[in-house]
Design a protein around this nucleic acid. Structure first.
Lengths: 128, 128
DNA sequence: CTTGACCTTCCAGTAACGGGAAGGTTCATA
DNA sequence: TATGAACCTTCCCGTTACTGGAAGGTCAAG
């Protein structure tokens, strides 16, 4: 199938699919006309990539996961390590954002948001 | 003062300070030797930038905040609008990450992480 | 035979810097 | 006075993961 259909089936934009080929994640066949030709397994990989990217794995992590997925002799512990590390990162991000949220909300509440020029938000930003 | 001292006082790397100049956020004087020469107000602005960047405002938002900060006739409502929008964004990010976290944790718990090649994480990634 | 929807490659840009090269300046020390 | 370290300068490339667009080839329908 052409890239348009592979795009439709995988949910990834054609541009992204070409990019994934550029960086060596997939290697579709080519037709006589030069068009890329995707098989069912290619689409399967693309869906795998789509899903793991949307779960917050970086492209390089996806490359590792894909390699593990294709290596029938790999240990599931390898995969679990990657996912656990990612979980820790997500936890940290959530903590940071929550802290940020608290500070920002404090500022927003302190500002009366009227026509007068005095603004506690700017004052705190300039001193903090 | 030279860029090194401005860096030390503002907490921003010298590279970042030069970058902020490139994109027009600050305009320090220059000495006869070509060195940048920062005054107390420059450092003040740099600290303002440092603080607002660390609160999650983009550089362009910082540019707006800085303009508002320097515009003595602005209404505090303008500032509050920017901060409130940012707060909404942060809330959305926290929600997305929390959802991600839940899915990933589910996967990690489902994986026994032993030497056998079957792995629920990879299976779900390839189907999801 | 033409039109429009595909497809191709390549080039450039995004956000916000960081690394490092090549070279000038300043200051303390031998 | 020389010299070496520690500054400073500009410039260019690399990062992440794409996205947009230009210029041009291909294909199916009418």
């Amino acid at each position: 199938m052409n890239i348009g259909e592979a795009s439709g089936r995988s949910g990834l934009p054609a541009k992204t699919i070409r990019y994934y080929e550029d960086i060596g994640l997939i290697r579709p066949d080519r037709g006589d006309n030069g068009y890329r030709d995707y098989g069912a397994d290619d689409v399967h990989k693309l869906r795998f990539l789509h899903r793991s990217r949307s779960l917050g794995f970086s492209v390089e992590e996806c490359r590792q996961l894909l390699a593990l997925y294709e290596d029938k002799s790999r240990a599931s512990a390898d995969v679990k390590d990657i996912a656990t590390t990612k979980l820790t990162e997500i936890d940290r991000k959530i903590r940071e954002l929550t802290e940020l949220r608290r500070t920002l909300e404090h500022l927003v509440h302190a500002c009366h948001g009227n026509e007068r020029p005095d603004c506690p938000i700017l004052e705190e930003l300039s001193e903090g």
